[in-house]
Design a protein around this nucleic acid. Structure first.
Lengths: 329, 329
DNA sequence: TTGAAAGCGCTAACAA
DNA sequence: TTGTTAGCGCTTTCAA
């Protein structure tokens, strides 16, 4: 705490302006001068004061991540992608946990504005997103990841949810199943809706008429998966196969099956969005839709960075990443 | 972008100093004045410029978290505790992923210093910690969480690892088992060492002599648990029980057992550090040691905050949180 | 290619 | 109880 450009300038026998230029790698400086300054920087152990720099430049080289939950592998793999990408550019990542609450999303947005982040990546918790206009008004660019809000749009990086579940369901049908249930998340969430749409699309393509009793909707959590699987198994004529639209629901479903000693030979077979290895090892899951999770983050970061660096093209950049079908035999 | 204390002062007909006082909730201001200012703040939509504030105060109200991995439930539950605690005080959290590399720990420390964080919480990746002297030299307080480095000390929040595994092993012994294997992590990590010490302590107390063939050391990852369980089961006389010292190793071990159709009646029973619900549902695990994970984070944050707020007592504050024994029947 | 100097928006010492 | 004012350390015109 203490060495400033002034000190360095004094040591190198130049002006503070020159020191600043050298530090920021500007060109148009005599090599010998640059070396003198660099030497002084080294000797003195000088470090820029980012507060002062930011006060001038109005850039913090910090970006925010708003996530519905931070103790969650899926979201944090996105975060990993973001961090890995940004770190190379000297950016750091402020992570905010909203506990799936729109109110918290608002609070955290305010916090991030106050912190002068240069941009924000948002994994929205609900379909509402108007409160993010706060960021827009503050001139802070943001990119949605994984999901869209339905009342607000902007740049986004998503996976092709509909195609993913369409492919999985189609595969199940081609294996000879026609009795396929669907355990999905809240239609509040765009990805939940899209995965459901893929299910319907496959049924339609193969002329299978949908059976409302086999279509269950909960939320993307373990408990919900547990209960819905219970409900499904409790039917008079349980389905041959169930497609579970989310990792945590899948965990819950398996938990139910095991707790109730429903071995794979008597339980419905399972297809799923996201891969739950234990499920296929145990013999329940036969097909899953794998998402490029980290890439969601890194691509979102890339788009965000382009916005930060002045890309003002008005149309929304929406990137749909491809999923991969995984068959376990 | 634009409204400053000066603008607000103008609107309210007071000086910038007064505005500053009101904003910072200082006392000794006439109520009517305060109201005038607050009104002007509201009307104008003023927001403090944290860059300017920080330049003056030298405080960023930001703290860093250095974690070996960010897509990891355990570490992120710690982060959750940290974020939840700090957020109430207007602090935000910069998260850094070191990929379990000491070199990255150094780089991230530098980044955080540059960002002028007020403090850092560190989950160290290895036993080496001398590179954190960088933080100390920069006058930035830090607190270790979950683990200690062995060549460097400081404030820390840990769980009572030794006591935890001691209790679990003791319980197994009291159930009549004397043939208990141990699958543990690298002695690089303090928590791995302590958990092993608890194992030994229990054997000693019950006068069971240790069998080197039953003591296997790997690292705290899924693959390692898989391989070590394989190794154990491959012995001529496999043990009745195995104590697995970490969640991910437990996952790997179960994966091995299931893949190889070793049902609970033929496989060793399992005790573990951390709870893997599926394992007890499947009938493998009978006892586990539960850690107060989020509390590790919140307590670490609390200590850090006290340091930031000027607590300079020289002795290291080391907090050991209690684990809980969980029996599954 | 370099230097002088203004000023980013805020806080805090000092004065009133 | 409030105001005046001097910086915090940096970047960036403008001039040389």
């Amino acid at each position: 705490m203490g060495i400033t450009v002034k000190d360095v300038a004094g040591m190198a026998g130049v002006s503070t302006a020159t020191v600043s230029r050298v530090i920021n790698n500007e060109k148009g400086i005599r090599l010998s001068t640059r070396e003198k300054v660099l030497e002084a920087v080294k000797v003195s152990g000088y470090r820029v004061n980012t507060f002062a720099r930011s006060l001038k430049t109005n850039k913090s080289r910090t970006i925010g991540l708003i996530s519905p939950e931070i103790a969650n592998d899926f979201f944090m793999n996105i975060a990993r992608g973001v961090e890995g990408f940004l770190e190379r550019f000297g950016y750091s990542l402020i992570i905010c946990n909203t506990n799936e609450s729109a109110k918290e999303e608002l609070r955290r947005s305010e916090l991030l504005i106050e912190k002068n982040v240069d941009g924000v990546i948002i994994i929205p918790a609900t379909k509402r997103g108007t409160h993010f206009s706060l960021l827009r008004d503050a001139g802070i660019p943001f990119v949605f990841a994984d999901r869209l809000t339905s009342d607000y749009n902007g740049d986004a990086v998503l996976v092709d949810n509909q195609k993913g579940s369409f492919e999985a369901i189609s595969w199940l049908i081609e294996q000879g199943h026609s009795n396929i249930a669907f355990i999905g998340g809240s239609p509040e969430l765009s990805n939940a809706r899209e995965r459901y749409a893929g299910y319907l699309q496959a049924l339609e393509k193969y002329k299978i008429k949908k059976d409302e009793r086999l279509i269950l909707t909960g939320n993307f959590h373990v408990d919900s998966g547990y209960r819905l699987m219970e409900q499904l198994v409790g039917l008079n004529d349980p389905p041959e196969q169930v497609f579970i639209a989310n990792y945590f629901m899948h965990v819950g479903a398996i938990k139910y099956l095991i707790s109730n000693s429903l071995e794979p030979d008597v339980s419905p077979g399972i297809g799923s969005f996201d891969d739950l290895e234990l499920s296929s090892i145990l013999g329940y899951a036969s097909v899953s839709v794998a998402q490029p999770v980290e890439e969601i983050g890194s691509k979102a970061a890339e788009i965000l960075l382009s916005r930060i660096n002045g890309d003002v093209s008005p149309e929304n950049k929406i990137l749909r990443l491809h999923t991969k079908l995984r068959i376990s035999l």
